[in-house]
Every structure is written in structure tokens, then in C-alpha cells.
Design a protein around this nucleic acid. Sequence first.
DNA 1: TTCATTTACATACTATAGTTGATAAACTCA
DNA 2: TGAGTTTATCAACTATAGTATGTAAATGAA
Lengths: 74, 74
Amino acid sequence: MDMRKLVGRNFARLRREKGLTQEEIAASADISQQYVSGLERGGRNPTVQSLYKIAQALGVSHMELVRPDREDER
Amino acid sequence: MDMRKLVGRNFARLRREKGLTQEEIAASADISQQYVSGLERGGRNPTVQSLYKIAQALGVSHMELVRPDREDER
DNA sequence: TTCATTTACATACTATAGTTGATAAACTCA
DNA sequence: TGAGTTTATCAACTATAGTATGTAAATGAA
């Protein structure tokens, strides 16, 4: 199981659902837009502190970012 | 909210409940005993991949390691 | 189609995650 | 109490998380 990909999928989905841009999340979470892009692509392995900052910026619990999804069953 | 401390508390508690030593977890998760100690003390900021490896070694879902606990209400 | 906005990619860099080796301190149990 | 085991601490090191800058590529709406 690749946590980078799981977090990426959850992140991308939640952000779109909230109708926010990567730039907005980046500013709110105090991380770079380029890093946001990398995370959503499943290409970065964030620390739990970064995870929390992102969840705060999205206005959701950090649990939502690590919750297994359907893709995860495969 | 300090995720390092939350993960540390959950980790230490679960490990004791399972009656496993830090050394055993370290070997199973392929990380160092010294790092395990640091994590449990709340002094390290693990990546989500490391989080998953530890959860596997504990035989629990990674969700258990990031779940808010009572201390977290304060 | 055009244009403004958004996302993805590349590179070089700093900060820190995680390792290793050594060992002190704490703990457990007979 | 003493010995063996477990956990905590320290320092130096390698690997990678996350940054900053620049910009190409993709997207969406008019």
C-alpha cells in the first residue's frame, strides 16, 4: 500500500470538492504550490505535521487525508 | 495540535497493549530502535510511509496511529 | 480560438527524517 | 540485590522532505 498515492488521491478529491485552488491551499497551509502539486500526484511522502497543516487548510480532519478509499482495495 | 505527540502517544499505548518491545517493532517495521524511542517520546515527525510501516508492525490500521485521543482535547 | 488561470515539471538548495554505533539509565524478575 | 533486558540519549552521517525560482503545459470560459 502506497501512502503517498492514498494521501494524494484524498487531497486532490477534497480540494476539488471544496472548490479551492492549489495556490489557495498552499498559502493557507504555508507550503509551496509546487509541493501541493507533487503531493496530489502521489509523488511526495509528507510528514504527519504537513498532513495536519494541509487538513486544516482544507477545513477537514487529518483523518480524511489518510482514510482508505476504493482504489485502496486493489 | 502536535501530531508528533499524538502519534507518539498512540504508538506507545498500542505497542504496550500488544506486549511488544521497541526492538521487535523496529525489526518488523525495518526502522531503528532509537528512532522508535524518539517517536514514542513525541520527538520525531514521521512521514506517512513510516507511519504505515509502524502500523503494519503493530498489526493495526494506520488510522489508529493518527486517531485523536483524550489528551488531544486539551 | 484566445487568454487568463491553474497545474505540472525541472533544478538547486536548506532543513530534517531516519540511520548507525555507543552506551547510560531504567526496568523487570528471580 | 543483581543480572539481563529494555528504553532513552547523544553525536555524526546519509537520504529525502520541503523550498524557491522559473516556466512549460494544461485547463476552462468567453
